[in-house]
């Protein structure tokens, strides 16, 4: 039986962001941008969606004079990712 995949995670960039953050304690916006190869605009939008869903927490500060956006995965985000991977397996076993 196929299990439904979380639409919030079943999107290339959002899944890439969550997959990066799952292995990290925290990461800067520039790090995520470099690793995912996304544009700043698109990444901002997707990070905002993940934050609204409480899958990640975002803290905006300054490093010197430059703005610094730091993201970390939340426990809800970890659960959602684990559920997504587990549901993904139901498609692979068929």
């Amino acid at each position: 039986m196929f299990k439904e995949l979380d639409p919030l995670l079943h999107s290339q960039l959002r899944l890439a962001v969550i997959s990066l953050l799952i292995g990290l304690e925290e990461a800067d916006f520039t790090f995520i941008k470099e690793k995912t190869g996304a544009t700043s605009g698109n990444l901002s939008v997707q990070i905002d969606k993940l934050e609204k869903a409480k899958y990640i927490s975002v803290v905006k500060t300054f490093k010197g004079k430059r703005p610094l956006t730091t993201c970390r995965i939340t426990t809800e985000g970890i659960s959602a990712f684990e559920k997504y991977v587990s549901n993904l397996k139901t498609y692979l076993n068929k």
Binding site: L15, S19, G23, K35, L88
Partner: peptide, 18 residues
């Protein structure tokens, strides 16, 4: 996005971090 692509994406991001 196909399920295989999801797996590849997750794997590639985890490897990047590693």
């Amino acid at each position: 996005m196909k399920t295989v692509e999801s797996i590849q994406l997750i794997e590639s991001m985890i490897l990047e971090v590693k």
